[in-house]
Amino acid sequence: MASTAVVQIELGGALTKVASGKVRDLFAVDDKTLLFVASDRISAYDVVMENGIPGKGALLTALSIYWFRYLPSHVPGLKTHFINNSLPSALESSLDASVLASISRRSMQVRRLRVIPIESIVRGYITGSGWSEYKKSGTVHGIPLPTGLIEGQKLATPLWTPSTKAEAGEKDENISPERARTVIGDAAIAAEVERLSISIYTVAAKRAEEVGIVLADTKFEFGLDEENGNQVVLIDEVLTPDSSRFWPRDTWEQNLGGQQPSFDKQYLRDWLTGNGLKGKEAVTVPEEVVSKTAEKYREAFERITGAKLSAETS
């Protein structure tokens, strides 16, 4: 991976920036197309760290593209916003070769759609905030669960457990499926979001299982294709270490009842919590934690895709 993290995305004014998230910057290509560019920024507990993970943006882009190509042939009725991973001609003529190379590895052109205002989380195992709630009330997102579950246990069936989609600087809030349906405001659209979320999770969990990974939970986002009858479309990133919990299958049962080793940002979360920095602003992550987090992301990518992460990819 590159030695320096790219935490600011600059396109020299060639395209207009329309939004900036915790990781991605979005630029308008035209009125129907956006350029998604993934930086190396990393967030935990809804706070962006001061420094990034070198090469992370390229890895997230490559893994999302893998899933955008894999999933539609395995999930009936699934459409995605992914168009291609080429750069718009406006950039080709305005940026120098080194910048183009870096941006190219981090970018994909996607359809410009109206975003459905929830985070569509699916949990196949009980952990994280779901486990915290269960210990207090026996529920997850208000859904009653059997007594006697232990941390990390596989659930009888995957659960659709949405959260609010917070504005920058605010916290997502876990909500019940019933409240999510109210937020979405259309019963048919909400039902399709739930169906697709569970179906995608099930397919992805099977693929992960094949390479020795447990997909504990993951977050999806969806948009509406208003020109095609408000068709629900999978958008944003998908099934990356930023948006998912990936655990090694071979140690999962041994670690029931406690924290699982992981191929995602849990290592960073644990470091923050252990150092009293959970939710704190302006945190600089030490090089050892940066390096270990990058290693875990890389292993998840290489196991799932079957490809090595080359210097050209990062």
Rank of each mutant, 00 (worst) to 15 (best):
79 K>L: 13
79 K>R: 14
80 T>L: 03
80 T>A: 05
80 T>M: 04
81 H>L: 02
82 F>T: 02
84 N>W: 01
84 N>E: 11
85 N>K: 11
85 N>R: 11
85 N>P: 05
85 N>D: 15
86 S>E: 15
88 P>T: 00
89 S>V: 14
89 S>T: 14
91 L>D: 06
91 L>W: 07
93 S>I: 13
93 S>H: 11
94 S>K: 11
96 D>S: 11
96 D>L: 05
97 A>T: 14
98 S>L: 13
98 S>G: 08
100 L>W: 09
100 L>V: 10
100 L>G: 07
101 A>M: 10
101 A>T: 14
103 I>G: 00
103 I>Y: 01
104 S>H: 15
105 R>K: 15
108 M>V: 03
108 M>C: 09
108 M>T: 00
109 Q>H: 03
109 Q>S: 03
110 V>E: 00
112 R>Y: 12
112 R>F: 12
112 R>C: 12
113 L>Y: 09
115 V>A: 11
116 I>E: 05
116 I>Q: 05
117 P>G: 08
117 P>R: 10
118 I>W: 07
119 E>K: 03
120 S>G: 12
121 I>G: 04
123 R>D: 01
123 R>K: 10
123 R>N: 02
124 G>F: 06
125 Y>G: 06
126 I>P: 03
127 T>M: 12
128 G>R: 03
129 S>T: 14
129 S>L: 10
